[in-house]
Design a protein around this nucleic acid. Structure first.
Lengths: 337, 337
DNA sequence: TTGTACGCGTTATCAA
DNA sequence: TTGATAACGCGTACAA
């Protein structure tokens, strides 16, 4: 790898001049010199050493993307195309803006902070943070931070969040079910935190508004630990009772459930109507095709990156909380009663 | 961020001593000093600046993960959980070994080379390379390189490849179909390169061995450009003719196809048997559950990272070409004639 | 218009 | 057992 020093020696120039040409500060360089340097740079395929540049400028051009993992709930991070699509959106924007992306998975906030510090990242995108995780990171890492899908408890958020109007999406979904004549509607999820909690709230609101009473028997808890999933789905199939419809917290859960219903010869939507949330390929390909709530993870990722990079350039985002809209997608898994 | 220099000033020591303690070179440091330094490091939460370290040592601790994209065939990179699972495997191992992962997508080999040079990556994992792409990169980047799923034409491979015995996997799949009484067997894919070519070859070999003649009408070409997929699937449904079974180049394709067959009221496996390749969640959840050829992308990713990191530590891999085995998974999408 | 010299934070060599 | 000092490659203030 050739260095600026070497180049300037070869060309009989100073490093300053070479560096200036590289950076386009050519107001005060003679055209001949510019040409000479440029040609030589081409020839030797000069590539700057970013470590040195970072050290000199105290910046890194690195955007850290941190996925917080959870031992107990590991599956969806892998299996759901949601994450990969989001990732593609982020990567695209990061690259387009001349930044680089470092991907890091961890369940340990201290580790995450350490990573950001060692690499002196210019900014951070955090996914899967719960409660005060986001705040804990932003307390120590004094760089722009954008979270995706994080609902934090304290109001004075120290970071920007890109989310979805989960509450309203679920609300609209349940309203749709009700409009189809359903009243005994269950909610299937594997937890009651963050995003899923909001979806649950939307579900509750729609029920309440329609004067439908909610009982805990309508919350179907899916256990997503590796060797619990199957048994848990079994249990839910036997618990359907008089419910005529279920809103699942994700398309993946919906398809897993429908798959298992099929094995029990319980027909969808004739015997039970199923709705999902996300609108991913699982729901589009399964038959009956899944009626669901649409969101666009790639766009979410792109937006997160755009907002973060904007902040790096001094643009404050319009709001600390940016919510994307959802859209109802009607397909074949809901029956009109 | 506190620096070694600052620490040594505070403690009235030299940077050398502090650095030595940090790195455990404590044969020649007095126990008291060690304790003093260690305690202070804890207290101020010292984190090394990697840029500086990299500059001083001419290494980076960065493993570059490059996904080569293709404008014309973009979909599967996003939608198939294959990539994300592989990614998780890689990330795990990279982190475990104390390295960091930089993720980069590009369809331009020159750009990929540039990226590796700028960051002075210690090693590179390449995915989705075709033909001589791998060689072109390794020609310029003089660092250990591991490719995943790359079949290169020239024999004197300059890089290690982690692959799958695709040819044999497809061969076994078709043998299974034949053992079920099928003779008119099609092959569905969106290309005839790399991995898919090998799978196609395995398919051909099994046919030949069974004395079954192959005609081009048995190769069902799926167009995967965004607005071609649907029409292409339509066309294939109308082309089935007297075929009784099809081996698809991936589970995703198989499920896309079965989904469309369902819409045409063509029953699987009664009217046509379908096999996939990969064994991912799509095939496991669809009904009828997909009979397929299993591979483990997370393991592939972990292995790639392990081999690469081994090379960084001076261990030469046993072979330039490491092939994982496949395994037949019989479920419900194939009928015995 | 061009060049010199220093600082960024770390590691490594060698002297004390 | 410890410390001074140079080196890594780049950017930049300041001098020429």
């Amino acid at each position: 790898m050739i260095t600026i020093k070497e180049i300037s020696k070869q060309l009989g120039l100073s490093t300053t001049t070479v560096s200036n040409v590289i950076h386009g500060k050519i107001k005060e360089v003679s055209p001949e010199t510019i040409e000479k340097v440029r040609r030589y740079l081409e020839e030797v395929e000069y590539v700057p050493n970013i470590s040195a540049r970072n050290l000199a400028q105290n910046q890194s051009k690195i955007i850290g993307l941190v996925l917080k993992t959870r031992q107990d709930r590991y599956m969806d991070l892998l299996e759901d195309p949601f994450v990969s699509e989001m990732l593609v959106g982020i990567e695209k924007e990061v690259r387009r803006a001349g930044y680089y992306m470092m991907l890091y998975m961890s369940d340990d906030i201290a580790e995450i902070i350490g990573h950001a510090a060692t690499w002196n990242v210019d900014g951070l995108i955090l996914y899967c943070m719960l409660d005060d995780d986001g705040s804990r990171v932003s307390e120590k890492v004094h760089k722009p931070i954008v979270c995706i899908d994080t609902y934090s408890k304290n109001e004075d958020q120290s970071f920007v969040n890109i989310g979805l109007d989960d509450e309203n999406g679920a609300y609209e979904a349940v309203r749709y079910l009700i409009s189809c004549g359903h009243r005994r509607i269950a909610f299937l999820s594997d937890n009651k935190e963050g995003v899923d909690l909001m979806r649950f709230r939307g579900y509750r609101r729609a029920l309440k508004e329609a004067g439908i009473e909610y009982s805990d028997r309508s919350f179907w808890m899916l256990r997503t630990e590796k060797d619990e999933v199957e048994r848990s789905l079994e249990r839910i199939c036997r618990r359907i009772g008089r419910h005529t419809a279920v809103l699942c917290a994700s398309d993946l859960f919906a398809v897993m459930f429908m798959s298992r219903l099929h094995d029990h010869h319980i027909r969808v939507p004739e015997e039970i109507s199923v709705m999902g949330f996300d609108d991913n390929l699982y729901g589009r390909l399964f038959r009956p095709a899944l009626t669901t709530v649409h969101q666009d993870p790639e766009r979410k990722g792109m937006l997160a990156a755009q907002v973060l990079i904007g902040m790096l350039q001094g643009k404050e985002p319009h709001s600390r909380q940016i919510l994307l809209e959802t859209e109802l997608v009607v397909r074949d898994s809901v029956r009109k009663l």
